[in-house]
Computed example of a mutant assay.
Amino acid sequence: MSSTRTIKANGINLFVQEEGDGPLILLCHGWPELSYSWRHQIPALAAAGYRVAAPDMRGFGRSEAPADISAYTIFDIVGDMVALVGALGERQAVIIGHDWGAPVAWHAALFRPDMFTAVAGLSVPPPFRGRGRPLDTLSAGGIDNFYWQYFQAPGVAEAELERDVALTMRTVLARGFSDPQSLFVAPGKGFLGAANSDLPLPSWLSEADLAEFIAAYRASGFRGGLNWYRNIDRNWGLTAPWQDAQIRQPALFIAGSEDAVVTGLIGAKRVQEMERVLPDLRRKLIIDGAGHWIQQERAAEVNAALIAFLREAAPRTA
């Protein structure tokens, strides 16, 4: 059984779920999620002989949410993961991330190859640092309604998403990002669009699971997670020293074939070309018919792929 505790790391309190013994595996969730999103992976990886730690990331769930927007840069968040490894009494770990957690994992491997010996990213390809600030690039391309842009003004998205947290979580998790149009905000509609409180849940998400997310977001609100988006351009500036750098550790990529994050024009190109950034990419697994919440939707296939990768890239010594 997994246990939970709050650990001081990088100056903030992180709520962490832990289970198992062996080489350390960090699991980094995305938005709008929690460590609970890894509920199928934590026991499976522990049973395979690994020590698993899954935090509520900075600004999410029961972890601390600093007030300052600038406290949510990629440096701060990777710093949390570096400090967490040390706080757990370890020097090295494999880092695995999904959605926003994937850029955290990729950048952790990029910044600290001495600590993060292997890396897996789910649903979001590795970083291709473009030649201009991401939000400026969108505007220059005539796009003004992408959800990243809608999330920028403090308080706007919070007001919409917190108005009815149950409706928000049902809409975002049940709808997912299978429709590319879900990434664009229609004028006057908000991020949720024509939300439907009777939207049926997919087979992989129970009402009890949904209730976990609803309770957590009613308590925390959405500000912390949204602040990650408000650092997108700042992150571009901070990562200038790693322009065209490669992540040389053993790497794994997993995504769903119906996930708009990887099927859109930019995402599809990044998936196709990721070997440029990942010269030791061991496997690129695109799970047919799966959507964005891949480790929840297709737990058995994701677990099997992760365990096979870990046995190869981070074998148990005992």
Rank of each mutant, 00 (worst) to 15 (best):
E90R: 15
F213G: 03
E207L: 07
F111Y: 03
G59H: 11
I287Q: 08
G132T: 14
V262Y: 01
F309Y: 11
D68P: 10
A65M: 07
G22S: 07
L173W: 05
A166E: 01
A83E: 06
K8I: 10
P126C: 08
A140P: 06
A255H: 09
A44F: 03
T263Y: 08
W31I: 10
G30W: 01
V302K: 02
D244E: 15
M81S: 05
P32K: 03
L281P: 06
F309I: 10
D21R: 15
A240R: 14
F191W: 08
A46E: 10
I266Y: 03
I74D: 02
L122K: 03
L278M: 11
D114G: 09
G188T: 05
A140K: 11
S37M: 03
A109L: 08
Q41C: 13
S35D: 06
G61S: 10
G49D: 04
A93G: 14
A174W: 03
V94C: 14
M274W: 13
G49K: 01
I307F: 02
N235K: 12
I96W: 10
A313M: 06
I214H: 00
P202Y: 03
L281R: 12
N303T: 06
V302P: 02
D288E: 15
A219I: 09
F177G: 05
V302I: 08
L161M: 08
K269C: 12
K284D: 08
L210G: 00
V85W: 02
S206R: 10
G121P: 02
D80H: 04
R234I: 07
G289I: 10
G89R: 07
F116L: 04
A120R: 00
L252H: 08
Y36F: 15
M274H: 12
V261F: 00
V16Q: 06
A208E: 09
A251I: 04
G291I: 00
P187E: 02
R218A: 14
G79L: 09
L27M: 09
M57I: 15
T117I: 13
R51N: 15
W100D: 04
A245M: 11
T117K: 13
F213E: 00
I232E: 04
S139V: 15
S3F: 11
D68V: 12
Y36G: 08
D233W: 11
K269N: 13
G289H: 11
W106A: 00
G176D: 01
S3R: 14
